[in-house]
Design a protein around this nucleic acid. Structure first.
Ligand SMILES: [Mn+2]
Ligand SMILES: [Mn+2]
Ligand SMILES: [Zn+2]
Ligand SMILES: [Zn+2]
Lengths: 134, 134
DNA sequence: TATTCATATTAGAATAGTTCTAAATTGTCT
DNA sequence: AGACAATTTAGAACTATTCTAATATGAATA
């Protein structure tokens, strides 16, 4: 009686169903909540749960999940830090430089008058706004 | 007969006038052009000019220039890399993930319908859009 | 179920951009 | 010139992430 089918989620996204991936998927997706996460947080959390996964594997897993479209990457925070978002819908963030707190921006907070056009010969792959606050 | 007064620029911004700062300021501001620069580029360039400055000093200098308002920092590029902009006016960028090329967005490319409001108890310090292209 | 093998995991080393340390130097004020 | 706080510097330290290469494992096949 599992309410959340990790095996289906992984295989449907072309990912082999391994113990580390199952544990990470359960941690991130089982309750359907939006989360902003780092590799370190995932590794710590699994450790506390007695399901330790090597940090390198956590990185591999998060990158695989991102390539598979299960996670989005948030750019524009502290240089040198990768933060992933379980909400893969395009949306924007407030980043509190003092506390490190990252919050979703209500969709109504920002509207674009005109979408930017990519320079000749290129196409837009991603764009997101990070509003830094204090 | 100097067309660009580094001494005045530095002291007017509350910075002591040292050899490294004068050399960096001349390199970055003498011709009035907009530039996107890294510490490594500055150190290399000064080295080639026979005016070597220690890399740590270049970092100190760029950070001082930024605090003094002479440079802006561009967030949202590769994690772990600081890029500064001699154009301190708020503006946005295209970032080519393949080539690493960073270009200013024409002001007309993006218009905002509504400015975002910061979460309670905070104020917006900075925001910029990086549109990633390929 | 047993075999197979491409794929994934892992510990530890490597990497790279940036910051730190602490001793020597230098710019500015008097 | 003298005083002293600010700055420079080489090299070490730091830190988040990736790499290496040996081992383990999932899933397809027999
Ligand atoms: Mn989010
Ligand atoms: Mn620019
Ligand atoms: Zn499974
Ligand atoms: Zn001067």
């Amino acid at each position: 009686m599992k309410s959340f089918d990790t095996h289906t989620l992984l295989t449907a996204h072309g990912l082999r169903c391994t113990r580390p991936r199952v544990k990470v998927a359960e941690l991130l997706f089982a309750d359907g909540q939006d989360r902003h996460i780092t590799a370190e947080w995932v590794a710590d959390e699994l450790g506390k749960m007695g399901e330790a996964v090597a940090l390198a594997t956590v990185y591999n897993t998060l990158n695989s999940f991102m390539e598979a479209g299960l996670l989005a990457q948030i750019n524009g925070l502290e240089a040198g830090r990768y933060v992933f978002d379980t909400n893969t819908e395009p949306h924007h963030h407030f980043y509190n430089e003092t506390t490190g707190c990252l919050t979703d921006m209500p969709p109504s907070a920002l509207r674009f008058y005109k979408m930017p056009e990519a320079p000749a010969g290129t196409e837009i792959v991603d764009w997101q706004v990070v509003v830094r606050v204090r």
